[in-house]
């Protein structure tokens, strides 16, 4: 038994983390710093990949890859696509 399979969105978070790291957009230490800065209660409130996508996003914002306004606008658009991940996952 090797545990559960991860959800597609979680695998995508993992892939984004590895690829952005390999391309030099941030370092694993930058991700860890962002995770630690979320505070202790983030560990209780959010799942592993929820915390990691937050850390990836934090580092990309800090690195100027896109702006908060672009992110916020896009997240609103995505919410309008449909009520499930399956419907919203591709723009």
């Amino acid at each position: 038994m090797d545990g559960h399979d991860f959800a597609l969105w979680e695998k995508r978070v993992d892939a984004l983390m590895v690829l952005c790291g390999a391309k030099g957009f941030f370092t694993v230490d930058g991700l860890r710093r962002a995770l630690e800065d979320m505070g202790e209660d983030a560990f209780e409130k959010h799942s592993y990949y929820e915390r990691w996508i937050a850390a990836v996003n934090q580092n990309l914002i800090e690195g100027g890859v896109y702006s908060l306004e672009e992110l916020g606008t896009r997240m609103e658009e995505i919410a309008a696509r449909g009520p499930t991940y399956g419907e919203a996952q591709n723009g």
């Binding site: 941030f26 370092t27 230490d29 930058g30 860890r32």
Partner: peptide, 8 residues
């Protein structure tokens, strides 16, 4: 040094 890497 991770203490520098962490802050870019």
């Amino acid at each position: 040094n991770p203490e520098q890497l962490a802050y870019g």
